[in-house]
Design a protein around this nucleic acid. Structure first.
Length: 444
RNA sequence: UCCUGAGUAGCUCAAUGGCAGAGCAUUCGGCUGUUAACCGAAGGGUUGUAGGUUCGAGUCCUACCUCAGGAGCCA
């Protein structure tokens, strides 16, 4: 089996050069395979800009330097036509990116029909209808590359800190946290199945098997949410650690987010600059993150004149108000148990509070991480399941975890798209995933 | 589900209740360094749908449809 990444062996056998490697080929004649991004002409001179997925390269076609059929072919090129160009690479300050190619040959692979996405402005509806083409655009291309970096950093972080990847099922027999927002699947004969809304309960099982485990996969929420922070289908990474407490998991979340931000800054700076991201906002993601209790946060809201009722969960404007008081993510812990999930461990110092934590990102990006310490007492969980009117038979396996060597344990979940949107500084989460699924949109 | 806003050329948008317009895209022509290139010309319309008011409706009224933003809920 060929390995595309190891030592670049796969790449070296290809008869093409990728634009991201162009600086290493100055003075050489190379082949670029891609698509026409834009074209400008000036009589006897044509400037086709070629994109190949790794970057954009400006080419120069001079009428007297190419065969007549190449010149004629250039006249027929339309936006997004696919082409293979051959020529010598040269550094030139006049070219975007600093390098350009003097074309000696151009082969047309396919002439594109009139391309719907022009180099001018478009509205969100039109762009989302053409998402399959929109991702070719410069900004979307940059966002997807940042997303890749975030995911790679997530995996590298856990893989290099003793965690074992143990993915949890997508089809699940029951709700983790209530049934209101579940997608029902009509396939299994015996019982109803639902698309997962969290790997949480299964992670507790894998953590008991592996010590430190994490799951990373798609998650589905049938919430009627219609905001820039919500997707119907999103990706979530969920670490779970046996013998960890709330404080341990807050340390982990803090270290983890700093690692991800540092990696994006280190490896995707050109993309961040393309996106116009204020890099100082990302450089500020440094330990220690402020840690405040729910009670302290509630006092901030009341003192700040916000319309907030003590005892309830924070709304989006509340989160934005709290996070606006800090220049880095803030961790809010010990929420009222009544507003949190049934499996949260009560605070021994104040049983009306749960040992949960939300990490609120700055700049209004909201809750990127939610987690906490899980209840380890069997009878408490039985009571909670009854109190929440959940079917106990659906949780028998989960309760087994408390019968056979129950230990303190904690974990959290991070929404990948919220993190990517935050890193990129983009307005809407739907641009942080290749093909967003929202309440009223399942195409393309 | 609720609140708010928007639907006019392929796209982005103009048009006091009085002739349906512009830029970009497309097609044709011009230009030897373009940077969302520029210059000239041409084609392109059931103004979201259905009613209503009016001498006359893109514009005012009613209902519906679609989309966007927000709330609740959440990552």
């Amino acid at each position: 089996m060929r390995n595309a990444s190891r030592d670049g062996q796969f790449r070296d056998r290809m008869t093409q050069t990728y634009i991201e490697d162009i600086a290493r080929h100055v003075g050489e004649t190379i082949v670029i395979k891609g698509w026409l991004y834009n074209i400008r002409s000036s009589g006897k001179l044509i400037f086709p800009q070629i994109r190949d997925g790794s970057g954009i390269l400006q080419c120069v076609v001079f009428k007297k330097a190419v065969p007549e059929e190449v010149w004629d072919a250039c006249q027929t090129l339309t936006q997004e036509s696919s082409v293979i160009v051959t020529g010598a690479v040269r550094a030139d300050d006049r070219a975007p990116g600093g390098f350009e190619m003097d074309v000696t040959n151009l082969e047309v692979v396919s002439i594109a029909e009139p391309y719907p996405i022009t180099p001018k402005e478009h509205g969100p509806e039109f762009l989302l209808d053409h998402r399959h083409l929109w991702i070719r655009s410069k900004l979307q291309h940059a966002i997807l590359r940042v997303r890749h970096e975030v995911i790679r950093a997530v995996r590298d972080y856990f893989d290099s800190n003793g965690f074992i990847l143990a993915d949890t099922p997508i089809f699940t027999p029951a709700a983790c946290e209530g049934t209101t927002s579940l997608f029902e699947v009509n396939y299994f004969d015996d019982e109803k199945a639902y698309l997962t809304q969290s790997g949480q309960l299964y992670n507790e099982a894998t953590a008991a098997a592996l010590g430190r485990a994490y799951a990373f996969g798609p998650t589905f929420r049938a919430e009627k949410s219609k905001t820039r922070r919500h997707l119907t289908e999103f990706w979530m990474v969920e670490p779970e650690v046996a013998y960890a407490t709330l404080d341990d998991i807050m340390d982990l979340a803090e270290d983890f987010l700093c690692f991800v931000a540092a990696r994006v800054l280190a490896n995707r700076r050109p993309e961040l600059e393309t996106l116009g991201r204020d890099l100082s906002k990302l450089e500020a993601i440094q330990k220690p993150f402020p840690r405040i209790s729910y009670d302290e946060a509630a006092r901030m809201l009341v003192d700040g004149g916000q319309a907030f009722e003590y005892g309830g969960d924070f709304g989006a404007p509340d989160e934005t108000f709290i996070s606006s008081k800090f220049d880095r993510p803030v961790m809010v812990h010990r929420y009222p148990a009544a507003v949190k999930a049934f499996y949260m461990k009560p605070d021994p110092m104040d049983p009306t509070k749960a040992l949960g934590v939300d990490v609120l990102a700055p700049e209004g990006y909201g809750e990127v991480i939610g987690g906490g310490e899980r209840a380890s007492d069997l009878q408490f969980l039985r009571d909670q399941i009854a109190r929440h009117e959940l079917p106990e038979e659906a949780f028998d396996w989960y309760l087994d975890l408390r019968k056979y060597g129950s230990v303190p344990h904690a974990g959290f979940g991070m929404g990948i798209e919220r993190c990517v949107a935050w890193m990129c500084g983009i307005e809407h989460i739907r641009e942080a995933i290749p093909f967003p699924r929202t309440i009223y949109r399942t195409k393309p």
